[in-house]
């Protein structure tokens, strides 16, 4: 039975895709069969894996279970890592979900047939609060929430924790951290003091993260000894250790 991890934040540009791609890569490198579902219509993780952002039948057929999910999965360049690609129609995923019965349990239903096959399923979510995110909360065992240590970030985290109460476990981590900035250090200290759901591992701002788009692969693949690669490794180990049950 697989474990489902969703990288989620209401805000965009905080490192969700980067986390999803790098953590899924590390899971697969440990030889665990892993699937990443790129739910974001922009298709950034699909692009990083060099897969065409196309799902036959689009979002509507997929959430209505009219498409065999098995048939639209693509293998990546890494043997244990498969991708359920993004599709431009995902921008209307809300509408597609809304037209079904019990929309919030739909994404769970879509991945249900895959849960025996994959040990890890990552959901890379678009930034928003919507039916899509509610459906993600229902499907996920844990939310991995990247937070930029700036003002308001603690508010975001609080809101989210309240929102998913009784749902998935929330594991937040600081992303795009610049330790030279006093504000970053202060916010991190404060939020760690306030909340147990914040992980020790942090992901630094790094040119290597930005280079992923040029290299089109996980950081550990093209810069295995970089600070960013080691940071994702530490984050992955901590996440595994912190998961409930």
């Amino acid at each position: 039975m697989s474990r489902v991890l969703a990288t989620y934040n209401v805000k965009g540009g905080v490192g969700k895709t980067s986390a999803a791609v790098n953590l899924a890569y590390l899971a697969a490198r440990d030889r665990s069969s892993t699937l990443l579902w790129d739910l974001d219509p922009q298709g950034a993780s699909t692009y990083l894996f060099r897969v065409k952002p196309k799902v036959r039948g689009g979002a509507r057929k997929l959430v209505r279970l009219k498409t065999e999910v098995d048939d639209v999965i693509k293998g990546t360049d890494y043997e244990q890592l498969d991708l359920l690609p993004a599709d431009f129609s995902y921008r209307h995923m809300d509408l597609a979900l809304d037209s079904t019965k019990r929309p919030t349990s739909r994404l769970s239903k879509v991945i249900a047939p895959l849960r025996d096959e994959y040990e890890w399923i990552f959901l890379d979510c678009p930034p928003s609060i919507s039916l899509v995110s509610e459906s993600v909360f229902d499907a996920a065992d844990a939310l991995l929430v990247p937070i930029i240590p700036a003002t308001l970030s603690s508010r975001t985290f609080e809101q989210l924790s309240k929102l998913v109460q009784g749902g998935p476990q929330v594991l937040a981590f600081f992303s795009m951290v610049d330790r030279r900035k006093k504000l970053h250090r202060e916010v991190m200290e404060q939020l760690r003091g306030d909340s147990a759901g914040v992980l020790e591992s942090t992901i630094p701002t790094s040119a290597d993260v930005e280079r992923m788009g040029v290299q089109r692969s996980a950081i550990a693949e093209f810069a295995p000894r970089s600070r960013a690669a080691l940071a994702y490794q530490a984050l992955w180990e901590e996440v595994q250790g912190r998961l409930n049950g």
Binding site: F49, R50, V51, K52, G75, T76, D77, R216
Partner: peptide
């Protein structure tokens, strides 16, 4: 040997 497509994907 990996066979690649036009995106240089295996």
């Amino acid at each position: 040997l990996d066979v690649l497509d036009d995106q240089r994907k295996t």
